[in-house]
Simulated scan of single mutants.
Amino acid sequence: MESEGTKTKGGDEIEEDDDPGHDLTIYSVHSIVTATDNFSLRNKLGQGGFGHVYKGKLSGGREVAVKKLSKRSDQGLVEFRNEPILIAKLQHRNLVSLLGCCIHGEEKMLVYEYMPNKSLDFFVFDESKRSLLCWNKRFIIIEGIAQGLLYLHKHSRVKIIHRDLKVGNILLDENLNPNILEANTNRPYAMNGTFSTKSDVFGFRIMLLEIVSGRKNYHLIQLDPAINLVGYAWKLWKEGTPLLLMDPTMSNPHNYKDEILRCINIGLLCIEYNASDRPSMSEVISMLTNEVEPLPVPKQPGFTMTRTVSIGKERREPENCSANEVTMTSMSPR
């Protein structure tokens, strides 16, 4: 497939850009199709509500991850091009770097740096791999995610609310350090104040509890009545046995029981029913790193019961979708 109006820069075929005043590379569809072997299944890294992610290799030899966005998005081309330009300016060690984008008809694609260890869910939820994540490594991952979110909420050029926080959107580098993958870019929505940074805090708690336990939140714990991971964590907390939540595959977890208990406590604080009661990400980081300061006692969380309903071939969790089922990123100027 040939692309008109292209030029070569650094060995990669890119398209002419009418507004070159940015660092974002506008890749040609030819270079993306070639890099991913026409989006072959063997190069597929993952998928979500935003679309599919593929591994690619550019002509210069650089490995990348290409996110092919869902055609269901009603975002216009101008909006699509403007927001990646802003995201490309974000620089933090716990964020996946956006290299460029590609627009071809209705097809919209984002090109990211490639992370060799894929996403966190490949480790946390895999029986054979999660034993590789000792508690020290898990804590580094938890703190890194929190630092990345704090940057998005407070220290980046534009205030960003991720809205799709989950272990599948946390990519791991060669040293298993966490990097947050941006959700599907979309135009900002006011939503009458429904979404805020506290929405991301709510999503952070799911990842924290999943990392501690090695369990997926939406898998029911077979009790009477059946509850999800959040409900199970709250049940154990009330019974005074929260450490039973620990992943049994971790080596010597009891050597770190105080730190693990602190993380479970923070996770339950992040799911307070009222957003105003949830800590900010700066407060979360302070709680994670200050082992002396006592933590507040968590209140009854919301969304502890799971009732799944079928919609076609998909399964949804209407009571658990507050922060994890929305796949758009909201940005507002500082």
Rank of each mutant, 00 (worst) to 15 (best):
M1Q: 06
E2P: 07
K7L: 10
E13S: 14
I14T: 08
D17L: 11
P20E: 03
P20T: 05
H22Q: 01
D23K: 15
L24S: 08
L24K: 05
Y27E: 06
H30V: 09
T34Y: 08
N43H: 13
K44W: 06
G49F: 02
G51K: 10
G51H: 01
H52N: 13
Y54L: 05
K55C: 10
G56F: 12
K57F: 00
G60Y: 07
G61P: 01
R62S: 14
S70Q: 07
D74E: 14
Q75F: 03
Q75C: 12
G76F: 01
G76R: 11
L77G: 07
N82R: 15
K89D: 00
Q91Y: 07
R93V: 12
L95I: 12
C101K: 06
G105S: 13
E106Y: 15
E113C: 08
P116Y: 10
F123P: 08
D126K: 05
E127S: 10
S128F: 08
R130G: 02
S131E: 09
L133A: 00
R138S: 02
L150R: 11
L152E: 00
L152W: 03
R157E: 03
K159S: 01
K159M: 01
K159V: 02
L165S: 04
E174G: 15
I180G: 02
N184A: 15
T185C: 12
N186D: 12
N186E: 12
R187G: 09
P188F: 11
Y189E: 13
T194Q: 10
T194C: 09
S196A: 10
S199P: 08
F204K: 00
R205S: 15
I206W: 13
L208Q: 05
I211R: 03
V212L: 09
S213D: 09
K216W: 05
N217G: 08
H219M: 11
I221N: 11
L223V: 01
P225E: 09
A226Y: 11
I227E: 07
Y232S: 06
Y232P: 09
G240C: 03
T241N: 03
T241D: 07
P242T: 05
L244G: 00
M246E: 10
D247N: 12
T249W: 03
M250R: 04
H254L: 14
H254M: 14
K257Y: 09
R262L: 04
I266T: 05
G267I: 02
C270A: 08
N274Y: 14
P279H: 02
S280K: 04
S282D: 13
S286V: 02
S286I: 14
L288N: 01
T289C: 11
N290A: 13
N290H: 14
E291N: 14
E293K: 15
E293S: 14
P294D: 00
L295N: 06
P296I: 01
V297A: 15
T306I: 13
T306C: 13
R315T: 10
R316S: 10
E319S: 03
E319Q: 10
N320P: 02
A323N: 06
N324G: 10
T327N: 00
S332F: 15
